[in-house]
Design a protein around this nucleic acid. Sequence first.
DNA 1: GTCTATAAGGAGATAGAC
DNA 2: GTCTATCTCCTTATAGAC
Lengths: 208, 208
Amino acid sequence: MARVSSAQRRVELVQAALRVIDRDGVHGATTRAIVAEAHVPLATFHYVFRSRDELIRELIAYVVEQEGRAAEGTLQSATDIRSLLRTGLQAYFDLVVSEPNREQAMFELFHYALRTDELDDLPRLQYERYHRTAADLLAAAARQLEITWSVPLDELARLLVTFTDGLTLAWLADRHDAAAARTMDHAADFIARFANPPTEQINQGAHS
Amino acid sequence: MARVSSAQRRVELVQAALRVIDRDGVHGATTRAIVAEAHVPLATFHYVFRSRDELIRELIAYVVEQEGRAAEGTLQSATDIRSLLRTGLQAYFDLVVSEPNREQAMFELFHYALRTDELDDLPRLQYERYHRTAADLLAAAARQLEITWSVPLDELARLLVTFTDGLTLAWLADRHDAAAARTMDHAADFIARFANPPTEQINQGAHS
DNA sequence: GTCTATAAGGAGATAGAC
DNA sequence: GTCTATCTCCTTATAGAC
């Protein structure tokens, strides 16, 4: 093998581990499975990482950051806030549908970190990042459409993440696309109601 | 050891396994840890269960059913639908706060089942049960206050579960009680808006 | 039905030659 | 820096005596 810097080896192993986790879950991401995926001998693992959990820590930081960046470029354009929100939710959902294992892996990593003493600071950071990303998107949407939000931005951001988490979990359970679409409709309506000045409401009032 | 029926041994082991999972996570629920918790020799495990996953299957059915039953007795009384919903959410949240490991375990079991071939029918059943429980509660609330829902009950039930899941995950991550309370305020407002006849809205319009 | 002993294999981590 | 061989421990599951 060519001699490679330790820093580069770390990145290679993190990315290999991520592929293994997507495929087999956090449980399947043993040091042996990771080095096989990366085509390096087992000893290389412990040459560049002190332990498996040290890799998992770096991996979580990597994917959370990556997911945050991916979300940033998502904002499209629309004439009203409701459709802007609905389109954004759809873009997120399409990503989940196209790569369900990835989102599943994010949840698994979250729960693994919650249960692991050396990693139990990560869940908080993970959700801080989610909430910050959501807040950034909502702020950008407000700028684009020249509206303001009638509740604090971080409160609205937390609501948005609440919706995406709940949406994703239910869809992973039953793969019910139409139900997910209805949930997104309601989520968009709901958050759009906090825009000032208001747009006319749809999906409101008596349906029955 | 006294001779005990196989059926009873199964229940004992499931309950012991549940205690281990609450304490150490699904990952820590090895056959050895379970039999130690139940104070039986290792061979007893495989005398009554064909495999570890067979126990996990029975355990998931057990806890999902148990959680469903627990929710049923939850409905309190109130003069308007918004406070009834808010109180119900608070009751759920208080349960999460008092036993965070239990709710964490439910998520872990869900993701474990999703990743395990022999168990991958369970997540769907788990969410069917959640949705049915939510629908039952919303129907009972409507009867109690003599209102009707302006959207289909199962659609509303799914929204309620979306909220509780998202709420729980964020709280497990950052333990931010006040933010969780605000999320519940919004969730109650949101769902109450689908009641006919409507009650007057609070927390609506310009706060800024 | 209950138990001890053990099979058979996978895990994280390391020693030490090159 | 890289690699083979191995240590030590823990896993699920079973054989077979009582």
